[in-house]
Design a protein around this nucleic acid. Sequence first.
DNA 1: AAACCTATTGACATTTTGTACATAGTGTGG
DNA 2: CCACACTATGTACAAAATGTCAATAGGTTT
Lengths: 127, 127
Amino acid sequence: MRGRGQRRQRGGRRAAGMRESALLLLLHREPAHGYTLLEQLAEFGLDEIAPSVVYRALRDMEERGWVISMWDEEQALGPPRRIYRITALGDEVLAMWVQELDETKKLLGRLVGAYHLHMAEGEGEYH
Amino acid sequence: MRGRGQRRQRGGRRAAGMRESALLLLLHREPAHGYTLLEQLAEFGLDEIAPSVVYRALRDMEERGWVISMWDEEQALGPPRRIYRITALGDEVLAMWVQELDETKKLLGRLVGAYHLHMAEGEGEYH
DNA sequence: AAACCTATTGACATTTTGTACATAGTGTGG
DNA sequence: CCACACTATGTACAAAATGTCAATAGGTTT
């Protein structure tokens, strides 16, 4: 019994690349700290993603050169924090991802549409 | 260097549950063999998914009671093949998944929209 | 000082997906 | 007949993505 996935706990993996795209878009608007991004992700329904997952995504994106970070010198209350900003490569990657997401959106529309159309016909359901 | 995902090879994981939903919808229309489903997935842009992945998905779905299968007695040219049909539980699960996919579609729309809106403003891009 | 909030990281487990190959029946061309 | 191709499914292992928990750390509040 290896149990292949039960149910997602609301908020996790939606569509491939959504998390990365959201982060890149937020950073394209303006540089920010991980903690801030964490909160801003709610705008795209991506809250409920665990903090470590977001921080990890940021580190991975930095490894790939999509963003860069440095310790924020502005010592403002609390522990040291990194400030992230998008790179030129990040810009390009964002544009590509958005196209991908739009493709996925269309495919989802096709599937959902096909479902409702089929249900409206009242056929099928073969048990 | 554990390398966290490079690029999907077109067709793989798009959105969570898309593959299962597509299979369930196809089976709601009419019972079918795995091999047939494999081809019909193209309707939803899900071709390019490796055969073993589809067969595995079907077996997992059967374990969960969403579908049932039996060896097809109609001996028609070639090796024995399974015929899958959806269950009542499968019907319910399909309906739930479609709602989920519709939610995801909306979130994608929000993200893609926010991107274009932001780009139209010509601000940001902080390198 | 205990408790809490901000902020980031690390390690490990679990889940999901990819890939390559094994098996098997049938038909076709040389 | 043999090699090859097509239909059809299954198995095993590798790799990638995600989840979970706890550790560390500075600062404020009670």
